[in-house]
């Protein structure tokens, strides 16, 4: 039996405006940086932000699976899907969280940063997501419902493990495809980012989705939540490992590099 969402949840008007303005401000900052990079010839940031905005279309589907309900009286609802109302701050949040962090990942890889930087981006994404979601929840704009595990203050922590895995996956993919993402082809990012998002959630969040929608003992839901968190970490580890392999391939090695020189994750 699917748990019934708190359909009568009401968002405080001031809180809804506050959170919307907060997200607009963060998105504006991310857009400013992306546009500055675009002025220097790197369009990837702009299209990554656009891809993040498009990926927000998937949010309602995941909210249904992961049991999250946005109050229907939030300001500036952009679209309805899966019987849910998606406010503007969700759409912008996707832009700066998934789009911008994916671009930061690609940007870092392009500058030769290695696995330590990727894990740092994942960790920062984890904390950033927690801070942002805690703020919105504390204001009363949305509510996680059902038998959520790892839920100390209304934010189920298994989500925090899954969300930052997407920008690592997408950023890594854009880095590997970078030579093919010039000119009009850069627009492929707008399609690829939602695909990566769907693939990431599909691949690693299915244990908790199934458990939340089944008649199972509480401990099974907790095990499913732990499995989802473990899958997330394994997923990121595999991507980091794959990118290291990609950087070590013979054609990526500088011809005259001295044998003792430190080996960057990505050849310049």
């Amino acid at each position: 039996m699917t748990p019934v969402p708190p359909v009568h949840l009401s968002a405080p008007s001031g809180g809804s405006w506050f959170f919307t303005v907060l997200c607009v401000a963060i998105f504006a900052g991310a857009s400013g940086w992306a546009l500055a990079r675009a002025a220097r010839g790197d369009m990837l940031g702009v299209v990554a932000l656009a891809g993040g905005l498009v990926a927000s279309l998937i949010e309602a589907m995941l909210d249904n699976l992961g049991l999250l309900w946005f109050a229907t009286d939030n300001h500036l609802v952009v679209f309805h899907s899966f019987a849910r109302s998606m406010p503007l701050y969700v759409v912008l949040g996707y832009g700066f969280y998934f789009g911008a962090i994916a671009y930061v990942t690609t940007f870092s890889l392009g500058r030769g940063h290695g696995s330590r930087r990727l894990w740092a981006i994942y960790a920062v994404g984890w904390l950033f997501d927690l801070a942002l979601e805690t703020t919105g929840s504390a204001v009363g704009l949305y509510k996680y419902y059902g038998p959520q595990p790892f839920n100390p203050w209304g934010i189920p922590l298994w989500w925090m493990f899954v969300n930052p895995a997407l920008p690592i996956a997408a950023g890594g993919l854009f880095h590997v495809m970078r030579d093919r993402l010039h000119g009009v082809r850069a627009l492929l990012v707008v399609v690829l980012l939602p695909m990566c998002y769907g693939a990431t959630y599909g691949a690693i969040a299915w244990p908790i989705f199934i458990a939340l929608h089944s008649h199972v003992p509480g401990w099974v839901v907790w095990v499913a939540g732990a499995a989802t968190a473990a899958f997330s970490l394994l997923f990121v580890a595999l991507i980091v490992d794959g990118l290291e392999w990609y950087a070590r391939r013979p054609e990526a090695q500088p011809a005259a590099a001295p044998a003792s020189a430190p080996r960057p994750l990505v050849a310049a």
Binding site: L57, I58, A60, M61, P194, M195, G198, A199, G202
Partner: peptide, 13 residues
């Protein structure tokens, strides 16, 4: 699930 979610999301939506 990676295939289904990444390719099927427009249809599901």
């Amino acid at each position: 699930p990676a295939v289904y979610a990444s390719a099927g999301w427009p249809m599901y939506l």
